[in-house]
């Protein structure tokens, strides 16, 4: 089924943790704890998701169809098979891209008004 721009727009703006989760999943399948650690690393420990917040967000994204639970395991030797892995959907990718476009537009607008700041 074709995904319209309207379908995508209803998810925007994304919250920062959700955006990071989608970014991580766009690189490959992850389980919950891996997502958490990756976000922690990327944000220099600034976003530390508790498990309630993490699985709450996962639960919501599953319902919204941004991600799905994956049946495949990366390598049974490497990982505990009881862990659940998640995979980004086409809709999830479209939403992440739309968020990037939204952020870019925002940054461009800010640059025009305020100029590009020197790195601190």
């Amino acid at each position: 089924m074709a995904i319209s721009a309207k379908d995508v727009d209803q998810f925007l703006p994304l919250s920062l943790p959700v955006f990071h989760m989608l970014l991580s999943l766009s690189e490959g399948e992850r389980h919950g704890y891996a997502l958490k650690r990756e976000i922690l690393r990327r944000t220099d420990k600034r976003i530390n998701l508790g498990s309630g917040a993490l699985y709450g967000a996962i639960n919501k994204m599953l319902e919204q169809g941004l991600i799905v639970e994956s049946d495949e395991r990366p390598d049974p030797h490497l990982d505990d098979e009881r862990r659940r892995y998640y995979r980004i959907t086409t809709l999830g990718l479209r939403v992440a891209r739309a968020e990037i476009a939204r952020l870019r537009a925002l940054v461009q607008l800010a640059e025009v008004r305020l100029g590009i700041p020197d790195p601190v």
Partner: peptide, 20 residues
């Protein structure tokens, strides 16, 4: 403290994550 359905779905994962 979490509702039944959520617990059923994620209790194991959350518990394991906390232990890790």
């Amino acid at each position: 403290l979490y509702p039944a359905s959520f617990r059923q779905e994620y209790e194991g994962a959350m518990d394991r994550q906390f232990r890790d």
